[in-house]
Nucleic acid binder design. Structure first.
Lengths: 246, 246
DNA sequence: CGACACATTGAAATTGCTCAACACGAGTGG
DNA sequence: CCACTCGTGTTGAGCAATTTCAATGTGTCG
C-alpha cells in the first residue's frame, strides 16, 4: 500500500530533486505528504477558480492542467501548463485569494497537501521546503520567459518556443523521448497560451510542419529537428531548470 | 545615524507591512538588514545582468528600476517595474544564475542584503521572512497580470492598465496623490513593457489624452478619471495587494 | 550653437484577426 | 447501422490593428 502511493509520488520526488539533493528521509516525507488524500479530476473541469481561497495545496501526480486568467468579455490567457510533479496553490497566506484559475486539460490525479503539513515543512524537512520554494521560483522564471514570448516574438517564434518548452519539460520528467510525447493540447489551447487566434495558430503550425520541424496530430507531438526549431524560436534553455539540453 | 538609515528604509518597512503585521522588533530587524551597506546607481545603468549570479539581494530605497529580458537581435521586454520598497535578487539558491537583467531608470539607492543576513531571517525573524516571501508571490501575481495584458488586451487597454497599476503602486507607498506622480518613464519604456512599438504607444497615449483620461508629460503622470480609465483597461485591482482602491 | 534624447506625424506595408464555410472523426441516440 | 452533433482542424477572402520607415519638432544640456 505504502509502496503503491510512493510510486504515485515519484514525479513529485523526481521533480523536487532537481532543485535540492533529497535524502531518503526527505523522499519519505514527500511521499507521506501526498499520501493522505488524492483526488481525481475529469478532463475539462476547473480545479480552482480565481477569487477563491485555496483550501489545500496541490501536486500533480498524472495528467496535464493549466492555469489561466480570463477577462470579463471572455478573452482568456493561459499562464502556464502544469505537468506531473508540479505543485500549485502553495499559499503562504491562507487568507489570500487565488489570482488565477486552474483547469484540468486531461484527467488529472492530484495529491492534496494539507496546510498543517505544509506549515510543518520548514521546520521538519527544510530541504523539502526549500525545494518547493525553488520550484515556485522556477515557475516564475518560466512566466517571465512567457512574457518575453508574447511580448516580443512573432507568431512562428512564439509557437516554436512553446513547443520546445513543453517538449523539454516533459522529457525532464521522463514523459518524452525521441519518439515524441503525448500532447493533449489543442490548437485553441496553443492560441490561448500564446496570445494568438486559433486560426493563426493553425496556419503557423502548418508552416512548422511544412519545414519538417514538427509532427503534431492525434494528441501526439514530435520534434523533428530541435536544433533548427530552437534557432527559429530564439530558444535559450537556461530559464528551465533542465540541465541536459540535447 | 541609526535614525537616519531607519528613515531610508521606511519604504521597505511600509511595503512589507502590507503583507504581514510587523512588530517594532521586526521593523528594527529590517532596518538593521539594510543598514549595513547601501549603494547608489546612476540612471540608465545595469544593476544586474542576466546570467550572472547575484552576490547580494537588493531592496530599492528610492528611485525606479525595471527588470527585463532581451533577445539576441535586440528586442527587449520589460518584465516589471521596481519601486521603493521592492526587493529583488532574493535568491534562495546562490548557485542559480539570474534569469533576467535589472536596470536603473532613475538614480536609484539600494540596500544590499547580505546572504548571511538573509539566511538567518527564517529563524530569527520569521514574520519578516514571510513578508519577503509574500512580496515575491505578489510580484508573481503582477507578472501573471502582465502576461494577460500583453497576450489579450488591445493597445489602449494595455496602456491604460499599465498606467493604472503604476499609479496605484505608487500611491500605496505614498508617492502618488490626486495631483499625480513623478513618472520617469519614457514612451519607449512603455512600449517595451507592453510589447508595442514606441510609435504606436505615442498614438495610443494621445488617444488617452484626447479623452481627458490622463496627463502625461515632463516626467509627470496624472490620472484624470480613474473610473473611466479602469473601465477601458478592464482593470481589477485584486491582483495588486492594494486594498484601498479609489 | 550643436548634439542628443524624446515626442510627434504621415504614409505604406504587413502581421495577425475576423468571419464564414467546410472537412473530418468520435461519440450518441434513434 | 445511420443520422446527427460536437469538437477540432483547415481554408479563403477581406479587414484592421499595429508595425515600419522616414521625417520633423522640441527641449535640455554642455
Amino acid at each position: 500500500m505504502l509502496s503503491l502511493s510512493c510510486a504515485a509520488l515519484q514525479p513529485l520526488i523526481r521533480n523536487l530533486d532537481r532543485y535540492v539533493a533529497l535524502t531518503p528521509d526527505d523522499r519519505a516525507a514527500i511521499a507521506a505528504l501526498g499520501d493522505r488524500s488524492q483526488v481525481e479530476k475529469p478532463a475539462h473541469t476547473d480545479i480552482a477558480r480565481e477569487g477563491e481561497r485555496a483550501r489545500v495545496a496541490h501536486a500533480v501526480i498524472s495528467g496535464w492542467a493549466c492555469c489561466y486568467k480570463d477577462l470579463p468579455d471572455g478573452r482568456r490567457q493561459i499562464l502556464g501548463f502544469l505537468l506531473p510533479g508540479d505543485v500549485f496553490d502553495l499559499n503562504l497566506d491562507s487568507l489570500r485569494e487565488q489570482d488565477c484559475s486552474v483547469s484540468a486539460l486531461t484527467r488529472v490525479r492530484l495529491a492534496e497537501l494539507l496546510p498543517s503539513q505544509v506549515r510543518a515543512l520548514p521546520d521538519d524537512h527544510p530541504r523539502v521546503w526549500k525545494a518547493l520554494l525553488l520550484q515556485q521560483q522556477a515557475n516564475a522564471a518560466i512566466l517571465r520567459e512567457w512574457l518575453l514570448n508574447t511580448g516580443q516574438r512573432t507568431a512562428i517564434e512564439r509557437l516554436a518556443h512553446l513547443l520546445i518548452e513543453l517538449f523539454l519539460r516533459n522529457r525532464a520528467i521522463g514523459l518524452a523521448s525521441r519518439e515524441g510525447l503525448k500532447f493533449p493540447i489543442t490548437q485553441s489551447h496553443l492560441a490561448e497560451a500564446t496570445g494568438l487566434t486559433p486560426v493563426h495558430v493553425n496556419r503557423t503550425v502548418q508552416a512548422l510542419r511544412r519545414q519538417d520541424l514538427i509532427e503534431y496530430a492525434n494528441g501526439h507531438l514530435k520534434i523533428l529537428d530541435l536544433a533548427r526549431l530552437s534557432d527559429i524560436a530564439l530558444f535559450d534553455a537556461k530559464y528551465l531548470c533542465v540541465e541536459e539540453y540535447q
